[in-house]
């Protein structure tokens, strides 16, 4: 019998039954617990980032079309084959990774700032400001995202004032960022509303702190895990939407992204020519990178919502206890 058996104790606290997480303090409270999920997520994300920033050093120029067209993978030093224009797929994939991740990060950052304004400001200030901002947020939330992005991108192309950045990576990223914030804003608003009435916030208001100080120092740090999760979610959404937009021919024209690769594969009839090495890798990269980011997000979710972590653990410990009881009874019978 284990030396510290719950049944031998005089008092049993909930923590004992729930598998007793050790007490944590300060910043470590906000750090995701080490788990298989987190590790797998980090491996996928870090791996993709390394590929994006070190890969181009070892590959050809992605626009070099001197190679034979449509070489299958592995032939003639082309690990992933070539496109119908004779471009090396691996080189395109590595440069495309840079483009896609760039779009994701810029759009994610824009969405984060907007969701802070529309979420936390609305939730904290309350009153008519809140009514107005959150009505706008709800309207934006139900407007279908991708159709709106398509319309925006299509008009932006026509505008001569936007010509200098016409169809650039930046324009696409800005449009994606401008449409990706409402979901996060709604979550942040409800959190900010609940934090606003906590005693420590009231105390610092009574102490005469300015609103921007209270939001920045008292409220935001408590929302850090949530903000991180929202940012990651926005990055995933932006990368997926960029791919869709580029596939439809509305993506950045001067740069290479995973989306533009898929678009070229489509227009180059990769499907009917059986050139699977041309369109499978970019989609797979999107899926793996997105999956890695989501896995990291789950670990953050378990910090935000402890039930997701403690409940399965509790069920496990209950099951273990039941087994132990059954074994004890067997011993007694014997």
């Amino acid at each position: 019998m284990a030396k510290d058996d719950i049944r031998d104790r005089e008092t049993v606290t909930p923590a004992d039954v729930l598998g007793g997480p050790t007490r944590r303090r300060g910043l470590t409270d906000f750090m995701p617990r080490k788990s298989g999920k987190l590790l797998a997520g980090l491996v996928l994300v870090v791996g993709t980032l390394l590929f994006a920033f070190l890969g181009p050093l070892f590959t050809q120029n992605p626009r070099n079309s001197d190679n034979p067209a449509l070489l299958p993978p592995g032939s003639d030093g082309h690990v992933l084959g070539t496109t119908s224009l004779g471009r090396d797929v691996l080189a395109q994939l590595a440069h495309g990774a840079q483009g896609s991740i760039m779009v994701g990060l810029v759009a994610g950052a824009i969405a984060l700032v907007l969701s802070l304004i529309f979420g936390i400001l609305a939730g904290y200030v309350g009153g008519w400001t809140d009514e107005g901002l959150s009505a706008f947020t709800s309207v934006m939330l139900v407007l279908p995202g991708l159709p709106l992005i398509i319309v925006l991108a299509s008009f932006a192309q026509q505008s001569d004032a936007l010509q200098f950045m016409s169809r650039s990576l930046w324009l696409v990223a800005i449009i994606l960022g401008l449409t990706a914030w409402p979901g996060a804003a709604i979550v942040l608003r409800s959190q900010a509303r609940s934090l606003r009435v906590r005693d420590y916030v009231a105390a610092s208001r009574v102490a005469g702190e300015k609103p921007h100080w209270i939001i920045g120092v008292e409220i935001l740090p408590n929302l850090l895990p949530l903000l991180a999760a929202q940012f990651i979610g926005a990055v995933i959404l932006a990368i997926m939407n960029e791919a869709g937009l580029a596939y439809l021919g509305l993506g950045p024209s001067g740069s290479i992204t995973w989306g533009t690769m898929l678009n070229e594969a489509q227009t180059g009839a990769a499907l009917t020519r059986g050139a699977w090495w041309w369109f499978v890798p970019p989609g797979l990269m999107i899926a793996l990178f997105g999956c890695g980011l989501s896995l990291i997000n789950f670990s953050i979710d378990e910090v935000v919502n402890p039930k997701l972590r403690t409940a399965p653990a509790a069920v496990k410990s209950v099951r273990k206890a039941a087994k132990a009881v059954a074994e004890d009874e067997k011993k007694v019978e014997a």
Partner: peptide, 29 residues
């Protein structure tokens, strides 16, 4: 929850991160 079925969670994450139209392209192919 708390059994082997929990491994469905990461699996469905991968499914969710797959771009719709890319899956469509694979199916067509």
């Amino acid at each position: 929850r708390g059994t082997w079925v929990d491994s469905f969670v990461p699996a469905s994450t991968l499914l969710q991160a797959v771009p719709y139209f890319w899956l469509a392209m694979i199916f067509v192919y």
